[in-house]
Design a protein around this nucleic acid. Structure first.
Lengths: 335, 335
DNA sequence: CTGAAAGCGCTAACAA
DNA sequence: TTGTTAGCGCTTTCAG
């Protein structure tokens, strides 16, 4: 690598002091236009770039936010990331991203590296394992240092921090109601692989309440849940053969995906068979005809989360923690 | 935020010098076990975390790698990212990711921020716009600073750096040959939305050569290319109605996706109609029955790219630039 | 208007 | 075995 060009070397070239160079580059009005321009010209010529590590050491803030997401292949998280980046980068913040791969062990590692004095704040979505086992002790590393933390999507009441979630219960209620009222469904099968996590339970409850409120009895055999989709290969075919089922509600994307694929293998074209509503973020599934999508507005979740982080960072008042809700919307257009 | 706990404050608490604390924490054998342990105990108690910006300023390297990808929603890039992270984080490197959204303007911005003294090296995949317009001047910021740079997937000969790509021509040749030899196809339609980028051309050429080598004439009307898929709505239906077409080759995922969806809207179930081969990284498409997938081994591309970066970073010999090729494989299993 | 100097938190060569 | 000290590159106060 070339010899690094620093303030000092510029100063030597220009025969001025280091502080003059620094001030000139900062457009400090103390410096005369003449020297200021002369300095800046040389700096550009030599392609001078300030060492951010020195700047940040000096200034005392890192201007970087850590983000931990469980799975980058899930487009929901990818979209949230895009949203986060949009607002944080605009404010001059950098983002370091780590992926927990849904494992608490990996998550702890991420938190450790992150809290290693790198970041001004942490944004994360809990790994499935973490949320289920309620193992949050590693977050104390963050909380003890009083680093601002914002959790999104998968949260827990015991963790004291700002949070951003969807209105999962209500969205689920609305989607189910839509199937009942507008599509005339009476026997809606619910497919899920996330009934063990909190938000999965909420969505299930929304579905159940909608049924009840419309005078439909909840039929347990219509609730198909299997954490790793393993039961799906046995349970979905019988559901498909059950003539009474006149609608599907997919509580999460992989569950409805699996259902559609199993149907396809059985040579059922599920999309022409019965109405389907589902939480979904994949562009591909959106092309599926006659699918009613519950759009979580992932990018907006990113925006909101980033904003909450900035609020903590910039305002020193100790306002109490908030939980923001992003309203999911039913999306009928299939394109 | 709490008062930061630093080496100095620890030293005061312990009534030893700063360097004793530093050495103890670094497990320097110079220090007696007794003080070493005493120091470490207090450090853990107070949750001491070294300020990385100070460490890096002192040590002179940033231990972070910049990564710029065009689109995080494309699972190919998401997988490459996973691969990169796997090997870089193991070596103690952090990653800052930025997304160019396929725009040169945004890409320039990313490169600027990155080169702002943050990174030890840059890994990137060119934005489509950048590759098409051959606008690489912003990369000079990196090259001039002699920062190691590794390009993957979308590359250009004019850019002097290490590169990692797939064997696109050969993979395309193999896939087409498979359709011809094993599936008995004679009239294979090629669908593409990337014929304007280099790798899209290579894949097209591989297809054409395979046809020629098997005594099949290249029929231009069988080559359906449209940069933004706009022509697909008009051209795909006629291709589907053309009884002579007995196979499809998707040069990229969105093209084959669009084809399948248009077919679906026309009530053709393409998968039972004719054999399809396609470059594809989406888990969802993998479930598509009877689809022959060209697997680019994106994660491996990530591994290889990261390895090339580490080689540059760790070995100071000025070896000449290499271009590594990751062999794509044909994947028949549909699960 | 310009420069000298202190110090951010850390490491490491050198001294004791 | 421990401590002193210089300095990484930068900003900023204070003095000139």
């Amino acid at each position: 690598m070339k010899p690094k060009i620093t303030l000092k070397s510029l100063a030597e070239i220009l025969n001025v002091s280091v502080s003059t160079v620094s001030k000139s580059l900062a457009n400090n009005p103390e410096i005369s236009d003449e020297t200021r321009l002369r300095v800046r010209a040389v700096a550009t010529k030599y392609n001078y770039i300030p060492n951010q590590y020195a700047v940040r050491l000096r200034k005392g803030n890192t201007k970087t936010i850590g983000v931990i997401i469980p799975n980058i292949l899930n487009p929901f998280f990818a979209k949230v990331l895009i949203g986060l980046e949009e607002v944080l980068s605009k404010k001059g913040y950098n983002i370091i991203t780590s992926i927990s791969h849904e494992s608490t062990e990996k998550e702890i590692k991420c938190v450790k590296t992150m809290s290693l004095g790198f970041i001004d704040g942490l944004i994360m979505c809990l790994a499935k394992e973490t949320q289920i086992n309620k193992e949050f002790s590693h977050l104390d590393m963050i909380i003890d240092k009083e680093l601002p933390m914002v959790l999104f999507d998968r949260i827990h009441n015991d963790i004291e921090c700002d949070k951003v979630i969807n209105d999962d219960y209500e969205a689920s209620y609305r989607a189910t109601t839509h199937l009942i009222q507008d599509k005339g469904c009476k026997n809606i099968a619910l497919v899920s692989s996330i009934a063990d996590v909190h938000l999965g339970k909420l969505r299930l409850e929304g579905y159940q309440q909608a049924l009840i409120d419309h005078g439909i009895e909840v039929n347990p055999s219509h609730i198909i849940n299997s954490p790793n989709l393993i039961d799906f290969t046995s349970r979905i075919p019988s559901a498909l053969k059950d003539q009474s089922i006149d609608g599907f509600f997919g509580v999460n994307e992989s569950a409805i995906m699996k259902t559609i694929n199993i149907a396809k293998k059985m040579e059922y074209d599920i999309s022409t068979l019965v109405p389907i509503a589902a939480f979904c973020n994949t562009y591909q599934l959106r092309n599926h005809p006659s699918l009613i999508i519950v759009d979580q507005h992932a990018t907006e979740i990113g925006h909101k989360t980033a904003q909450l982080m900035l609020d903590r960072l910039l305002k020193d008042e100790q306002k109490s923690y908030t939980t923001a809700t992003v309203k999911a919307s039913l999306d009928y257009k299939t394109y």
